[in-house]
Simulated assay, not measured.
Amino acid sequence: MRLPGHAHRRHPDDIVIGPLDLSAHVDEALAVQAVAFGLGPDEVAVRRQIVLRHMTYPGARALGATAAGLLVGFIYGMPNDRGHWWSTVVEPYLRAQGHDDWLDGSFVITELHVHPGYQNRGVGRSLITTITDSALEPRSILSAIDVESPARGLYRSLGYQDLARQVLFPSAPKPYAVMGAPLPLRRR
Rank of each mutant, 00 (worst) to 15 (best):
L112A: 08
D104I: 04
H99Y: 11
Y118F: 15
G64A: 11
G98M: 07
D42N: 13
V89P: 07
M55D: 08
P92T: 02
G117A: 09
N120A: 11
L63Y: 03
H115S: 09
H54G: 05
G124V: 04
D42Q: 14
V44C: 10
T66Y: 05
P58G: 06
G73P: 08
Q119W: 03
Q49L: 08
Y93H: 14
V72A: 11
Y57E: 08
L71W: 06
R47M: 14
A45M: 01
H99Q: 13
L112I: 13
L70F: 00
S87Q: 09
G98Y: 14
G38Y: 06
M55L: 13
G117K: 10
L52A: 01
Q49D: 12
G124W: 02
Y76L: 00
R82W: 05
E91V: 01
G77I: 07
H54K: 10
F74D: 03
D42G: 09
L127K: 04
G69S: 05
L63K: 00
D104K: 05
Q49R: 15
Y76G: 00
E43P: 05
H113A: 15
W85T: 03
P58Q: 11
M78P: 01
G98K: 05
S126A: 15
A68M: 03
R48G: 06
V123N: 07
M78F: 14
D104T: 12
D104W: 11
N80P: 04
G59W: 12
I109N: 02
N80Q: 12
Y57W: 09
P58S: 09
R95I: 06
F74A: 02
R48N: 05
F107G: 02
T110H: 12
R53K: 10
D81G: 03
R121H: 15
P79H: 12
E43R: 08
D42K: 09
V108D: 07
L70S: 11
T56E: 12
L52E: 08
G83R: 07
A67H: 15
G117M: 04
T88Y: 07
G69W: 11
V89S: 08
E111I: 00
D100N: 11
V51L: 14
R48M: 02
M55Y: 11
